[in-house]
Design a protein around this nucleic acid. Structure first.
Lengths: 212, 212
DNA sequence: CCACGAACTTTACATTGTCAAGTTGCCGGA
DNA sequence: TCCGGCAACTTGACAATGTAAAGTTCGTGG
């Protein structure tokens, strides 16, 4: 690949002590979580291109082959990172919903705004989460956490119906709309011929929804 | 990277003769186009992971360093591939539109169906086109061809208005909807817990639109 | 106390993108 | 005609990456 001048700290001192609880077997026993955390940091700092198995290992203070004992190769590490991403994603949507008015449309709009806030605050992670390459979609943890995220949106759609498809049609419509909106918003960052008005609120493109 | 057992033909005989017209200087002079074509083939055959600068070169029958004389590194090649992708994309939408009834909604629905057909028939290319990594967004050819594609959709939206934002609001709403729908459709391929009904037609989630 | 095994390291290898230097073949001017 | 230059292409090298095999270290259970 290109030589991207190591944006990762070359190494880091070992975490002081194994956090008592758990099963600290060899050194500290929290390597798995440390690697996931390092991955998310690298994603934040250097985008998708900044995330590398070897750099995750270096940031966690271990050798480049250590991750192999905790993940099934690169795709295993990426899968674990994405699974954690979905948990944060779910929390973000729930947090936004909890501050909204009680009526169904306000709740749904708040969930979508959480969706959009997550995609803005975690651009590279968001992209990775919805990439179709190098992820192990059979991983149960990934399946669980992504289903949980989808469920938040599905719950928000439950009061509405969409033609003959019922609330499932609403789910797909709203998901498509908010996901496309997130993608379009993020694409227009580079200052390109910018057809997207950054002031445009999501709610203004969400059509009227029919209550069940 | 991983060792993916060379899915590319190791080499290929040189094209017979320089195609008369043009400026055939050294060997055949059509290397640039050949490399782009090889890239699209590799994308079809092996997905995003199957596309490699060296493999493009091998398939075009030249050495691994030859592309450097026609593109600015990998991102230059990817940019050219994506630019060609947008031209096919535009053609697909126009072809679909030309077979639709004359009323504005039917025209717009046809454009969206072209959008979705392209994303289904060219999954990896579609993903690359909407990736934000390793593309040279300052490239004029890319800017032109992507703007042309967007323009087809914008034209389809022109008869409609969306709240106070006019037809620009419609553009963003429809683009978000169709792009999200394409993404969601493609994600559900692996036979996962499949919330998306493959029979669901796009038109059924496209809300009523107000004519200007 | 000590053997076993888990956690981790070291070493090696194929693949990738990129660069520098060399080679080849065509064209235009003398 | 010839030859100098130059564009196109090749060869060889290098650093970075993911992965596999073999070795080392450390804790724990018997």
């Amino acid at each position: 690949m290109s030589p991207p001048k190591d944006p990762a700290a070359p190494a880091r001192a070992r975490p002081k002590t194994p956090p008592a609880g758990g099963k600290p077997s060899h050194h500290h026993g929290t390597l798995r979580e440390a690697l996931i955390g390092a991955g998310i940091e690298l994603l934040d700092e250097g985008g998708l291109g900044g995330l590398t198995l070897r750099r995750c290992a270096a940031r966690a203070g271990v050798s480049h082959a250590a991750p192999a004992h905790h993940f099934a190769g690169l795709s295993g590490l990426l899968t674990a990172i994405v699974a954690r991403g979905y948990k944060i994603f779910t929390r973000t949507m729930i947090a936004e919903r909890s501050q909204a008015a009680a009526d169904p449309r306000a709740q749904l709009v708040a969930i979508c705004n959480g969706y959009l806030r997550f995609s803005e605050e975690n651009g590279a992670l968001f992209t990775l989460m919805f990439s179709t390459q190098n992820l192990d979609f059979d991983n149960p943890e990934l399946a669980t956490s992504s289903a949980a995220a989808y469920q938040v949106l599905a719950d928000g759609c439950a009061p509405f119906r969409q033609g003959a498809a019922g609330s499932t049609g609403t789910e797909i419509m709203v998901w498509s709309l908010v996901h496309g909106f997130a993608t379009l918003s993020r694409r227009n960052r580079p200052g390109q011929a910018n057809r997207m008005n950054p002031e445009l609120k999501f709610e203004s493109i969400l059509p009227d929804l029919e209550l069940i």
